[in-house]
Amino acid sequence: MDEPIDQVVSYHLRDGLALIGLNRPTKRNAINDRLAEALHSAVEAAQVEAKAAVIYGEGAHFCAGLDLSEHVEKSLIAAVHGSRRWHKIFDGIERGCIPFVVALKGAVVGGGFELAAAAHVRVAEESAFFALPEGTRGIFVGGGGSVRVSRLIGAQRMTDMMLTGRSVSPVQMEQWGGVSYVVPDGEALAKAIELAQVAAQNAPMSNYAILNALPRIRDMSSEDGLFVESLMSALTSATPEAAERLRDFLEKRTAKLTAPKD
Results as ranks from 00 to 15, higher is better:
208 Y>H: 12
100 F>I: 01
183 V>T: 08
226 L>H: 12
48 V>R: 15
62 F>D: 01
79 A>D: 11
67 D>R: 14
31 I>Q: 00
76 L>I: 08
221 S>K: 04
162 M>C: 12
180 S>G: 13
193 I>R: 09
162 M>H: 04
51 K>C: 07
207 N>A: 12
212 N>M: 12
241 E>H: 11
146 S>T: 13
249 F>T: 05
140 F>W: 11
220 M>L: 11
249 F>A: 14
226 L>D: 12
62 F>P: 00
61 H>N: 15
58 E>Q: 09
253 R>V: 01
247 R>G: 06
26 T>F: 10
4 P>M: 02
254 T>I: 15
154 G>T: 06
29 N>R: 03
158 M>R: 06
196 A>C: 09
81 H>R: 14
110 G>T: 00
86 W>D: 09
219 D>V: 09
2 D>L: 14
88 K>E: 15
118 A>Q: 00
120 H>F: 07
42 A>H: 08
56 Y>Q: 06
130 F>H: 01
221 S>D: 11
59 G>E: 06
260 P>E: 06
204 P>K: 10
248 D>W: 04
66 L>H: 02
203 A>S: 13
247 R>W: 07
47 Q>Y: 02
105 K>H: 09
246 L>W: 12
84 R>T: 15
110 G>M: 04
1 M>G: 12
238 A>G: 14
151 R>S: 15
33 D>P: 02
95 R>V: 06
121 V>S: 07
44 E>P: 05
1 M>N: 02
132 L>P: 00
8 V>G: 02
5 I>C: 00
165 G>M: 04
184 P>F: 03
186 G>C: 08
251 E>G: 11
254 T>G: 09
202 N>K: 12
60 A>P: 08
59 G>S: 09
159 T>Q: 15
168 V>L: 10
96 G>H: 13
57 G>P: 03
113 F>D: 01
205 M>V: 10
39 L>M: 07
10 S>Y: 06
72 V>R: 08
216 R>H: 14
9 V>N: 02
108 V>L: 05
141 V>Q: 03
195 L>H: 10
129 F>D: 05
208 Y>W: 12
213 A>D: 15
43 V>H: 03
57 G>F: 11
182 V>K: 04
74 K>Y: 02
27 K>P: 00
250 L>S: 10
170 P>R: 02
48 V>T: 10
257 L>D: 00
150 S>A: 15
212 N>R: 11
111 G>M: 03
12 H>G: 04
18 A>P: 02
82 G>Y: 02
155 A>G: 06
24 R>P: 03
187 E>K: 09
17 L>E: 05
118 A>H: 03
59 G>Y: 02
150 S>I: 07
74 K>Q: 08
243 A>P: 10
12 H>E: 08
205 M>C: 07
114 E>C: 00
143 G>Y: 06
49 E>S: 03
181 Y>I: 04
103 A>Y: 10
192 A>K: 01
175 Q>F: 01
15 D>R: 10
234 A>G: 15
89 I>F: 07
54 V>C: 04
250 L>N: 14
235 L>W: 13
200 A>W: 05
43 V>E: 11
116 A>Y: 01
243 A>H: 15
214 L>T: 13
120 H>D: 11
85 R>H: 15
250 L>E: 13
100 F>M: 04
209 A>G: 13
193 I>N: 00
69 S>Y: 09
102 V>D: 02
86 W>N: 11
104 L>N: 06
243 A>F: 13
